[in-house]
Structures are given as C-alpha cells and as structure tokens.
Computed example of a mutant assay.
Amino acid sequence: MPYHFLEIAVTPSVRDAQAEMGVDPIWLGGAGQRSDRFTDNEVAFIGMRDSFYMASVSETGWPYLQHRGGKTGFLKVIDDRTLAFADFRGNRQYISAGNLAANDRACLFLMDYARRARLKIYIHVDRLALDADEALALAVSDPNYKGRVERMFKLRLEAFDWNCPQHITPRFTEREVEQAVLPLRERLSQLESENSSLRARLKEFEI
C-alpha cells in the first residue's frame, strides 16, 4: 500500500519542488508503510506530551498555527484512529474553532525537544459540545486542571509521519531539569551533612 501521509502532503507543486532539488526519486516509494493507525509507539509518545501545535486554514486560504498546552497526557488517545482533548477558554479569538467549522482538516505537530523527536499528524476535526458525548467528556476531563472547558475536539486520524531529528535544539521542561539534578541535590545534601558532622568532631579537639 502507498504511504498515505505522502499521498496527502506531496501535491504536484511539491513534486515539482522535489524534482528541482533532485530528490523526487527518494519519495516515490513508501509501499507497505502504514500511517493510518496509531501503534503503541505513537500512543506512548502522544501520552507523554504536555503541548502540541495545531494548524488550520481559513476560508481566505491563510494558515493559522496555534499552540495547545495542558497537563501531560491531556491529548487523549481514544483508539488507534481517534484523539480528543478538552478545549479550554483562552484569549477568546476562536480562530481555530472558526477555521475548523469551515474546513475540518488540520495538522498537528507534537514535539519532544529533549529527545529531539517530532510527530506530524493529519486529522479531521469534529467540534463537540460538552453534552454531545458523555463518555468522551469523561475521558478528556480533568477536575484538577485550572481552566474553563468550552467544548471538546474529536480528532479523526488521516495519516501520520515521524520527522528526522535534524535541527531540533534540545530543550527541557522545569520538571525534566528537576529530575535530572535530583541525584546532584541528594549528593550535595549528603556531603553537607557529612561536612557538618566533621566540623562538630573537630570542635571536640579545639583547645
């Protein structure tokens, strides 16, 4: 079977650009690669994200890129072809919501800067009221997260693709930094305790 992600992404003008750079033979293959079902690898990667970028297109043809963030795992994998997340109130411009009402096609970029990995996902988006699907609302809800939920987005997978790690500058979250330096903090605490003990013992020999 053809690589569906490239079937979508590679239009005639893209093919012309590839030919101009002499790389079009590279992208003629892809047979046998499935990209229309999430595997355990994608499910695990998605579940560890605390943000992603979502691109939509307006009725006038202008693209719009929006950052979405929340607690780790707020983008839920419902099944191997479905994602969902709660839409929290933001700046109330509703550009993505409006774009997706006119054109349900979108693209997600999920980044893992620390490990220099990124996952691209072509999707169709359904905007749903909170009372439209009780089970889905329960799946995406988080009573411990501050924010007013206005609606739900249900995302139907069309195709996905993994990018190479080139040119991704490693960045780390506050939590990742804390975990990385925890052994150093523990060792420092141990050394400070030993130092205090040695100072106390030295005082016993002071004249």
Rank of each mutant, 00 (worst) to 15 (best):
Q93Y: 08
S96K: 01
A97Y: 09
N99Q: 03
A101I: 00
A102E: 12
N103S: 14
N103E: 02
D104K: 09
R105K: 14
C107A: 15
C107V: 09
F109W: 06
R116Q: 15
R116P: 01
R116M: 06
R118N: 03
R118D: 09
K120T: 13
I121S: 04
Y122L: 11
H124E: 13
H124G: 15
V125S: 05
V125I: 11
V125Q: 01
D126R: 14
L128I: 07
A135Q: 13
L138N: 13
L138M: 07
L138S: 12
S141P: 00
D142C: 11
D142L: 07
P143S: 14
Y145M: 14
Y145I: 13
R148S: 12
V149R: 06
E150S: 05
E150A: 08
F153I: 08
F153T: 06
K154S: 09
L155K: 10
L155P: 06
R156V: 14
R156I: 08
E158N: 12
A159E: 05
N163S: 11
N163F: 01
C164E: 06
C164M: 06
P165F: 00
P165T: 07
P165G: 14
P170T: 05
T173C: 08
E174Y: 08
E174D: 13
V177M: 13
L182M: 10
L188W: 02
L188T: 11
L191K: 09
L191Q: 13
E192L: 14
S197V: 04
A200P: 00
K203L: 11
E204V: 12
